[in-house]
Amino acid sequence: MNWLSQNLHIVGQLLADHLFLSIPPILLSLLISVPLGRLAAGSPRLRTPLLTGTGLLYAIPSLPLFIIIPALFGFSLRSPATMITALTLYGCALLVRGAADAFSSVPQDVRLAAAATGHSRWGLFWTVELPLAGPVLLSSLRVVTVSTVSLVTVGAVIGISSLGTLFTDGFQRNIDASIVTGIVLTVVVAFALDALCVLAARWAMPWQRAVSRA
């Protein structure tokens, strides 16, 4: 506690850095994965290559990816762009499959009914498929949110500052309190963003609550 009160300013700065690195990749991967997942769900021919491709992406370890990406895209090794690109790729690796599953979970007879009542293709997507895919999509998004927040810390070993810096600093200078603070704050941030996802979903999908209460 003593350590924390003396270093409150630094910890606050690292926390802000951490949020700045975690939130964009979560949103970006959602934005990219929803259309890709819809494509995969709608076309058996696209499904396999899309899902295997993004699935293999997940197999690439994070630390090496943080090093391969700057080499490929010409970013500098320690730039936030590296981190955000890598984490967006990871997010997509999980979310494309999640979104494909989500869109496949929309019952065929509901799509049929919506088409029969004269929804256009576009209207069907926005007002029927997307809301109904919501619950399954949410569960993948929550996984991506939590693991992104946790993965951001890995960047600290190549010098990208985040709450992970508390680990590398604490280890080199032999300060337990620094590492423990980092672990606790990372978990807290992960759960806070997760809770935010759940709240947003509850607001956007009121029928979910009504039905589960019934």
Binding site: V146, V149, S150, T153, V154, F167, G170, D176, F191
Partner: peptide, 19 residues
């Protein structure tokens, strides 16, 4: 399982390393 996903491995590694 959901709690463990939030635990940063680098954090565990360094704290175990110190201990």
């Amino acid at each position: 399982t959901s709690g463990a996903r939030a635990l940063p491995t680098l954090g565990l590694l360094t704290i175990f390393g110190l201990w």
